[in-house]
Nucleic acid binder design. Structure first.
Ligand SMILES: [Zn+2]
Ligand SMILES: [Zn+2]
Ligand SMILES: [Zn+2]
Ligand SMILES: [Zn+2]
Lengths: 117, 117
DNA sequence: TCAGGTCCAACGTTCACCGTG
DNA sequence: GCACGGTGAACGTTGGACCTG
């Protein structure tokens, strides 16, 4: 990891309610105001339909390209934690969460109406 | 961190303006122009923050993962030679040299200003 | 600009081989 | 000879940099 050092100390922020502006790190590229929907690391915009970090975007891309079939490390039962520090521990649960979060190969966003929470 | 297979089946040109090139052995992977900072064997790029050979990289990794505490073979006094042919003679002195050379678990390079020699 | 793609340094895992007891 | 743990070369994976329509 490299760019993650300066977390853009937000400072005085107006609350542009309806604006589509985002906050970026000094190194640009990384959004500080929208986390990855899969692992909650900082995202770098939308990938495959959802806000996601570079790691989850790359992982999802490689998984679907090669038709990966993973087996959960937890005796195949699922339920592994998927966050920034644990996301590489179980590929099955990471991919499952990617799909549940709405990732798809065509990059289509899911309308808010259909989203679960 | 990132990493792809070192296979890179050459052939294709693609020079990729990366400012500093390295010299590799015919078998690829191994740098011939930058030695391991610990044992002076040929390195295979940076590992845990410094240029290191596969052996010292693997040794450091195993040592920190298992919290190894070694005792110097030289009556606990230190000062054992650590080079390609002697690096496996004393684990305590090898690990000490890894740390002094700047190896760390996060793989952060130390700025040149702070480096001793 | 955004969100796809490629590239590849640096990481992790594996396991034949080796030295020791 | 056998069992065991450490070694390090080979190979697969990750994710940030850069490219492209
Ligand atoms: Zn993520
Ligand atoms: Zn799992
Ligand atoms: Zn070395
Ligand atoms: Zn020693």
């Amino acid at each position: 990891m490299v760019g993650s050092t300066g977390l853009s100390s937000s400072s005085s922020s107006h609350h542009h309610h309806h604006s589509h502006h985002h906050s970026y790190t000094p190194s640009s590229r990384i959004l500080t105001d929208v986390p990855c929907k899969v692992c909650h690391d900082n995202s770098s915009g939308k990938h495959y339909g959802i806000f996601a970090c570079d790691g989850c975007a790359g992982f999802f891309k490689r998984s679907i390209r090669r038709n990966r079939q993973y087996v959960c490390k937890n005796k195949g039962q699922g339920g592994c934690q998927v966050d920034k520090t644990h996301r590489n521990q179980c590929r099955a649960c990471r991919l499952k969460k990617c799909v549940e979060a709405g990732m798809n190969r065509d990059g289509k966003s899911i309308p808010p109406f259909f989203q679960s929470h």
